[in-house]
Simulated assay, not measured.
Amino acid sequence: MGEISIKINIADRVYPLKVNMEEEEIIRRAAKLINDRIKEYQENYAVRDKQDLLSMCVLHYATSSLKADKKVTTDDTEVAEKVYQLDHLLTDFFSKQ
């Protein structure tokens, strides 16, 4: 697939981008999530400065990303431990045959 030119609006600013066609939907959804989060912050807090709103938004998504990374790492460790235990059980079982 080729690249296409799109315009993304974030915090009332337009950003022209060249993206792969298969990434367009994800990028548009990401921009919508950012704008929705900014709107939520505007409505719930006495913050009007776009820079502050964007900073709060970035902090939110960076925190979410780090939490997800930590969960994946924890889950991977738990799965590896279970596989090790299963391997040990199977080795014991077949060695007694």
Rank of each mutant, 00 (worst) to 15 (best):
residue 2 G to D: 14
residue 2 G to L: 10
residue 3 E to R: 10
residue 3 E to D: 13
residue 3 E to F: 15
residue 3 E to Y: 12
residue 5 S to E: 12
residue 6 I to W: 02
residue 7 K to H: 12
residue 8 I to D: 05
residue 9 N to H: 08
residue 9 N to C: 01
residue 10 I to S: 02
residue 10 I to P: 00
residue 12 D to I: 04
residue 15 Y to N: 02
residue 15 Y to I: 09
residue 16 P to A: 00
residue 20 N to S: 06
residue 20 N to H: 09
residue 21 M to V: 13
residue 21 M to I: 15
residue 22 E to R: 03
residue 23 E to K: 10
residue 23 E to S: 08
residue 24 E to S: 07
residue 26 I to L: 12
residue 26 I to H: 07
residue 28 R to A: 02
residue 31 A to Q: 03
residue 33 L to C: 11
residue 34 I to P: 05
residue 34 I to D: 04
residue 35 N to R: 13
residue 38 I to Y: 12
residue 41 Y to N: 13
residue 42 Q to F: 00
residue 44 N to I: 02
residue 47 V to E: 09
residue 47 V to F: 08
residue 47 V to W: 09
residue 50 K to L: 02
residue 50 K to P: 11
residue 51 Q to F: 15
residue 52 D to N: 14
residue 53 L to F: 02
residue 54 L to D: 11
residue 57 C to S: 11
residue 57 C to E: 06
residue 58 V to N: 03
residue 61 Y to C: 05
residue 64 S to W: 07
residue 68 A to C: 03
residue 72 V to D: 08
residue 72 V to G: 01
residue 73 T to A: 15
residue 73 T to N: 11
residue 75 D to S: 08
residue 77 T to I: 02
residue 77 T to Y: 13
residue 78 E to D: 12
residue 79 V to R: 05
residue 79 V to A: 12
residue 79 V to C: 04
residue 79 V to Q: 04
residue 81 E to D: 12
residue 81 E to R: 15
residue 81 E to Y: 09
residue 82 K to N: 07
residue 83 V to Q: 04
residue 83 V to H: 01
residue 85 Q to F: 03
residue 86 L to V: 04
residue 87 D to N: 14
residue 91 T to C: 02
residue 91 T to D: 08
residue 92 D to E: 13
residue 92 D to T: 09
residue 93 F to M: 07
residue 94 F to S: 06
residue 94 F to T: 09
residue 96 K to Y: 03
residue 96 K to G: 08
residue 97 Q to T: 07
